[in-house]
Simulated scan of single mutants.
Amino acid sequence: MAAVTKVSLKLMIDTERRRVVYAEAGKDFVDFLFYILALPIGTLIPLLDQEMVGSLGNIYNSIANVSTTYLRPNVNKESLLKPMAYFSGGTGLPLHLPNVESSRKLYMSCKCLHVSDEFNTICVCGRSMDEETKYIGTPSANNPYSSVGDYVKGKVTYMVTDDLAVKPLSTISVLTLFNKFNIKEIGVLEEKVVDVGMDEVVKLLKASLLTKSILTDVFLSVVKEEVDCSKKGKEEDDR
């Protein structure tokens, strides 16, 4: 898995209502949002802990607790609990969810053209599939064996709304959003640049399953803490 780095977002905050109206984002952040949809749901449940809405966590725990006595011989419990994420390996995405297995290898025997993604699978010819091979084909973001995995074009600024709707940033899209939230004066908006790293990635995922005010819930408390600390420091300097 590639080393985790940070990307920046420029938040446009409605200071009167104390909410994020939208964020200006680059390719890296939008690629990450789209990458989430490429992940098997089993990779997400452990990250959510007890904050899951619904009963998917119960299914996950049932698999973890069921005795192998009740599973068919060819069922690997770990493959259900820790499914592979095909799209992220080698993509160069700067943001990744923690503990998500993203690499994938292919194996074959020396006699057949069949391939498997599990080491030492017995081939139809009876031989063990223990020779690593590679998929060769046209790189594509939708190809599960591709190492490309980037989704949107660079050198474009994207608008990401509070509920994570994404579209290219334009004057029309901004005015439409202002009209929706009855924002009459651009002066009520405050710009704030925030960094998105591993902690924020997990918070974004959790919030996206619980609310439609994701950016507000994740980032505005951080902004408030920074403002409070700044005021406190200024007051101490004035004494």
Rank of each mutant, 00 (worst) to 15 (best):
C110I: 08
L220V: 03
M52G: 07
T15F: 04
D14N: 14
T161E: 02
N74I: 05
G92P: 11
V201H: 00
K234D: 07
L189G: 01
S170F: 13
L39R: 01
R239F: 11
P168G: 09
P94R: 06
V156S: 04
H114I: 09
F87Y: 12
I186Y: 03
L106I: 13
S221M: 04
A25R: 02
P168E: 04
F87A: 15
R17N: 12
L113Q: 14
P83Y: 12
V53G: 06
K224I: 09
A2N: 13
T91V: 07
E51D: 11
K82N: 15
L95F: 12
D195F: 07
N142H: 13
P139A: 06
Y35S: 11
P98L: 09
L56G: 03
T157S: 14
S140N: 15
F87W: 12
P98Y: 10
T5H: 08
M129A: 09
T176Q: 14
Y60A: 03
T138I: 15
G137Y: 06
S67T: 12
Y145K: 12
S102A: 11
Y22D: 01
N120T: 02
G126I: 03
R127K: 10
V7P: 03
N76E: 12
A85P: 01
D162R: 02
L80A: 10
I172H: 04
S170N: 05
L33S: 01
K82L: 11
T15P: 01
K184Q: 08
K206H: 02
E131H: 11
S147W: 08
F32K: 02
V152H: 04
V20P: 10
E235D: 10
T216M: 06
S79G: 00
K192P: 00
K105M: 11
L11H: 07
